[in-house]
Simulated scan of single mutants.
Amino acid sequence: MAVSLQKGQKVDLTKTNPGLTRVLVGLGWDTNKYDGGRDFDLDTAAFLLQEDNKVSSDSDFVFYNNLQGGNGSVTHLGDNRTGEGDGDDEQVKIDLSKVPANIKRLAFSATIHEANERGQNFGQVSNAYIRVVNMDTDEEILRYDLGEDFSVETAIVVGEIYRHNGEWKFNAIGSGFQGGLGALCSNFGIDVG
């Protein structure tokens, strides 16, 4: 049975799941009813971060326009522009055994595409979650439901997978940003100019 996390909780991935190397990170969400007349397009990204919490290059920013990073160890499975339907809206596959040694953490984010232009924010999003699945057994290892803590934010760092003493762990972050994807990119060392 999957571990259900609260904001700030950390859980071990590989120590309690010996042999775990291939994981699927799924993110999902629903949008609240509103009369803005515009579709919501949420996007998932993975930032492959070094010890200084920065990417080493733009190729370590994995998203809908750069589907692979970390020498192929991290693969984004594509952009879902509507978020309709049940289950994960976007997914990222990771082979933990192949993540380059200089990558210490993988931060997963959700942003609202053209949020400012469309007058949208995470206060209009509900049932957002991140989950980690063992790809070899199809078993959900953990799940973090974000709750309704956001209002004006247009980007969220949802969670991260990180190395600690030779093992991989997960941290439920749930930290919101204003300024959308551009603010996140700047935070992680990507020049958006």
Rank of each mutant, 00 (worst) to 15 (best):
V92F: 02
E51D: 11
A107H: 02
G179Q: 09
I161Y: 08
G72D: 09
D58G: 14
S126D: 13
A101T: 08
V92I: 15
S186C: 08
L13D: 06
F108D: 06
W29S: 07
L27R: 01
V23W: 10
Y144P: 03
A2N: 12
N17S: 11
T111G: 11
K7T: 11
N116P: 00
D41I: 02
E148Y: 14
G193V: 13
G78Q: 11
G72N: 04
F108W: 02
I130F: 10
K33W: 07
G19S: 06
E140P: 04
V99R: 01
Y129G: 01
Y162W: 09
E167C: 02
E160T: 00
N80W: 03
Q91N: 13
V55C: 01
G28R: 01
G179A: 10
I112G: 12
K169C: 08
F61W: 02
H113Q: 14
G166W: 09
L96A: 02
T82W: 03
L49F: 07
V23S: 11
L142R: 02
L181G: 00
H76D: 04
D60Q: 11
G176Y: 07
L20D: 04
N80H: 13
A115N: 02
D136R: 09
G193C: 09
T111C: 06
A155T: 14
L5I: 06
K7M: 10
T21P: 04
L142G: 07
N121Y: 07
N102Q: 12
L181I: 12
R38E: 12
G78K: 10
G69V: 13
V157M: 05
S97R: 11
S56I: 05
D41V: 03
I156C: 01
E84N: 09
G189E: 06
C185I: 05
I103Y: 00
I173A: 05
Y64E: 08
H164I: 01
E167Q: 12
E139Q: 15
S175K: 15
L77H: 06
Q68M: 12
Q9N: 13
L184W: 06
E90F: 07
K33L: 12
A2G: 08
G85T: 05
G83Y: 02
G85E: 05
D86Y: 06
N66M: 08
V92C: 05
I141S: 04
G72T: 06
G69K: 03
R38K: 15
L181E: 03
S109C: 06
D88T: 01
K93H: 10
S57C: 07
H76E: 08
N17M: 04
V3P: 05
P18G: 04
H164W: 08
A183Y: 03
K98Y: 02
I161K: 07
G19D: 11
V158R: 04
F61E: 00
H113C: 05
S97C: 12
I190E: 08
N121L: 11
F40G: 00
K54M: 10
S126Y: 03
